[in-house]
Amino acid sequence: MDPMALHLDAVVADAHNDLLMLVARRPRAVWVDYFREHWYPQLREGGVDLQVLPVFVDEEFRPEGAWRATLRMVEAAHRIAEGNADVVALCRTGPEIDRALASGRLALVLALEGCPQVDDDLELLNTLARLGIRAVSFTHFGRSMLADGSAENAAGSRLTRAGVEAVGLLESLDVLVDVSHLGRGGVGHVLELATRPVVATHSSADALRHHHRNLTDDQLRGIAATGGVVCVNFFAGFLTEEKPTVDHLADHIAHVAEVAGEDHVGLGSDFVAEVVDEKVPACDRPLTVEGVDAEVLIPGLEGPAGMPMITEALVRRGFTEPVVRKVLGGNLLRVLGGGPRQSQGYHSGVE
């Protein structure tokens, strides 16, 4: 099995890349060209066919400017798609994803990372769904009106009353509930309530690297029981305390596949290199995130162009072609409502 040929033929779907944050912080006049000239080549070099774009509101905009920052990022995504309609499409439904992939275009999907713009005004989730949001996480590291983040695990909190209502509302809107960043009590509460697939867009395995941002084996099994998918995070500090390699990432993928099942594991890159380079001044370096060095990266996998390394690592350790296809994107595509549902893929458009 030729890993590169497999990678280029499979659907490659990434559940979490913060590139939209970097687009939106630029003048709107350059949004379209910046994406086309800077990000699109990297994504295509990496064979990425479907990219989930999280909408994350920085601390500086909370709470007063949270809604404004959200709308700016959503508008940037729509402008990107409209201005580059020959190569990308912003997709709200599974059939729209299918059409984009079948035409050789990159499918873009919006997600909400944390809910500072919503708080407990849940009607705004309807508004966000209308604008194209397809997955929602309730908090980041700290406390929100819906739930506690993973850094608050010591509080032992479950969802708030508004959080419970939000799960039902999102399911009715066909929007995925994302448990990445959610505290352990909150994850368990979501899994008790869920009647539809739950996702973790960028989380790794606590059994291999004990950190509050990672998921326990019980949580992995619980997400699988909903029909959901755990998309493994590439952030080196959440994978290992050693010098990171792509094999550490493959270890986490293999563990999730073993515990949750091969139909319930995917990829959620959480690339941070360019975000750190642009947004963190030298006086704040080195940057640590929840006790780990954010500037330690897997060599060669600093951005989307390195994605073929993952396929090579999985093939090297004996993953079969159908399972590799599921990991690379088939599983995430399924929960987003697209198809084909199992092992077959679209051509990625990479020559």
Rank of each mutant, 00 (worst) to 15 (best):
Q51P: 09
E192L: 07
G339D: 09
L108T: 10
N17V: 11
V179C: 07
V12K: 05
R62W: 04
A205T: 13
S180V: 02
I298T: 13
V256C: 05
C115W: 06
A207K: 05
Q344K: 08
P308M: 04
T127I: 15
S348D: 00
I310F: 11
E75L: 14
R196D: 05
Y34V: 02
L22I: 03
E278Y: 10
G156N: 04
R26P: 01
P27Y: 04
D206V: 08
V335L: 15
E295M: 15
D217Y: 00
L112H: 07
L267V: 00
I80Y: 03
D270C: 07
E290K: 11
S157C: 02
P299Q: 06
R316I: 13
V136M: 07
I253E: 04
A154H: 13
R99C: 12
E241I: 05
D270Q: 08
P54I: 01
F234Y: 02
D247F: 04
L53W: 09
H347D: 13
R36V: 00
V276E: 14
V259Y: 02
G329W: 08
A162F: 01
V323R: 15
G338H: 08
E37H: 12
E75R: 14
H264C: 10
R285I: 14
G149Q: 04
A135H: 12
E165A: 15
R221S: 01
G345I: 01
R62Y: 04
S172N: 11
D58V: 00
E82S: 13
D2C: 06
C91D: 08
G318K: 11
F235N: 00
A282T: 10
P304V: 01
V315S: 14
I310M: 11
V335M: 14
I298K: 14
L215F: 08
M73A: 10
V179S: 06
A24C: 01
S269H: 10
R184Y: 03
A207Q: 06
E82W: 03
E312G: 13
L112S: 11
E295W: 15
V179P: 02
H210L: 05
P3I: 05
L176Q: 09
A147S: 09
A69E: 14
S204K: 06
R105S: 03
P63Y: 14
H252G: 15
G345R: 00
R341K: 10
L101P: 12
P304S: 13
L170W: 11
G46S: 06
L193H: 13
G227A: 00
H252C: 15
P304C: 10
L146T: 11
A155T: 09
P281K: 11
V327Y: 10
N233W: 01
G168C: 07
D14F: 01
A111Y: 12
Q42H: 02
H16N: 07
L50P: 03
H202T: 00
H210N: 04
E258W: 12
F61A: 13
L239E: 02
H212D: 04
H255G: 07
R79G: 03
G318A: 14
R105A: 08
L332K: 05
V324N: 12
R68D: 08
G186T: 09
L6A: 12
V292L: 09
A129T: 06
V259M: 02
L169C: 09
L297S: 15
D2R: 08
A100S: 15
L8H: 12
R25W: 03
D2S: 13
L249R: 11
V199H: 11
P281Y: 13
S343I: 02
I310K: 13
T216D: 01
G291E: 07
K279P: 07
